[in-house]
């Protein structure tokens, strides 16, 4: 998620700053050096983020197997996709995973930030502790938690050895609970970042608001919940977008933790795509799945513009 999160947070900032940076700083003039200097950007923007996506979409309408071809077969790949249990379960899984990790991350992250905001002397120490998992790769995260969740030698057995013999905590071995285990691992890795963003947001709140609330006799927890939280839209939006991109791309941690199992209980769309273009040699099918993955991102971006447009409209009215 490290890679993923970087992209997300940057993008959030990009959207946030887009409105304020619209004023042109300089007259646009064609400078050959400028175009030459940005050739890699032109190649990436056009070559990768436009042309590659178009090819993905095109191949999703073909019967490409090991190698891509242009034998168009209409919507057949999509029909097959949506009648494949493996895919449908993947979509359900990513939805459950997404809701749980985003809600969990937000709640836990905000709670941590609030507790960190109580003039804690060891703030730097706690911050380092909450944030260090984020520096480690999701593969590492997945492998560690897989070991911790080991039914015979992990937490479950350790607690049983301490005397609580009926203790059960080995989520990864059961189909019904495996996904929750992955969610927990993901939270462990990423909550610190949400906390850091939320804490920055908290610190950005006008100190006079706090004074006013104290004079008004609002209890601290109510101030955090009803006054300060709604004031942190920016931080919440950033944390949210960051986690969303992480969810859509979820791959590494599942591969390391469960390889999609047991059964298909932790299958994810990202794995589905990769499997179809590698082991299962069915590029057309893989591309159809990839195209479906693009949809929620498009929806999110559309939503973002809608919100911005609405805000601009309201600002114009006031």
């Amino acid at each position: 998620m490290t890679q993923v999160a970087q992209g997300g947070e940057g993008a959030a900032a990009g959207f946030a700053s887009a409105a304020t940076r619209r004023k042109p700083r300089l007259r646009k003039r064609l400078n050959v050096q400028s175009v030459l200097g940005t050739t890699p950007m032109i190649a990436t923007a056009v070559g990768v983020f436009i042309i590659c996506i178009i090819f993905s979409i095109i191949w999703s309408f073909t019967n490409s197997k090991l190698f891509p071809n242009f034998n168009f077969i209409g919507w057949a790949q999509y029909q097959r996709l949506w009648s494949t249990d493996r895919w449908i379960i993947s979509v359900q899984n990513v939805a459950v995973f997404g809701v749980l990790s985003i809600v969990g991350g937000m709640v836990f992250g905000y709670l941590l930030a609030v507790f960190m905001d109580q003039r804690i002397k060891q703030e730097d120490l706690f911050r380092s502790i909450f944030l260090y998992p984020f520096a480690m790769s999701l593969v590492v995260t997945g492998l560690v938690w897989q070991w911790m969740f080991d039914p015979n030698l992990g937490i479950q057995s350790a607690v049983r050895q301490m005397g609580w013999t009926s203790f059960e905590f080995a989520p990864l071995v059961k189909q019904e609970t495996a996904l929750y285990g992955v969610v927990l691992g993901g939270l462990w890795n990423g909550v610190g970042v949400t906390m850091a963003i939320m804490l920055a947001g908290l610190r950005g709140v006008d100190s006079e608001i706090w004074k006013a609330a104290k004079v008004d006799g609002i209890p601290t927890w109510k101030t955090y919940l009803f006054v300060v939280l709604p004031m942190m839209r920016g931080a919440i939006a950033t944390a949210f977008i960051l986690q969303c991109t992480g969810v859509v791309r979820v791959f590494d941690i599942v591969i390391a933790m469960t390889q999609g199992g047991p059964g298909v209980s932790t299958q994810m769309p990202a794995i589905y795509v990769i499997q179809h273009i590698t082991d299962r040699v069915n590029v057309g099918q893989g591309m159809a799945a990839a195209t479906m993955m693009l949809l929620p991102v498009m929806v999110l971006i559309g939503l973002q513009y809608l919100v911005r447009w609405n805000a601009n409209r309201r600002a114009g009215r006031a």
Binding site: G7, G8, G10, A11, G14, F15, M41, T44, A45, V46, V48, F49, I50, I51, C52, I53, F55, S56, W59, P68, T245, V248, R249, P269, A270, V273, I274, I277, V283, G286, M287, A289, A290, T291, M293, L294, V297, L300, I301
Partner: peptide, 18 residues
């Protein structure tokens, strides 16, 4: 386009890139 790329799931571009 680049910012849009920050959101795109990698799987969507991986195969053509290969």
């Amino acid at each position: 386009v680049l910012i849009f790329g920050a959101f795109v799931p990698y799987q969507v571009v991986i195969y053509p890139l290969i």
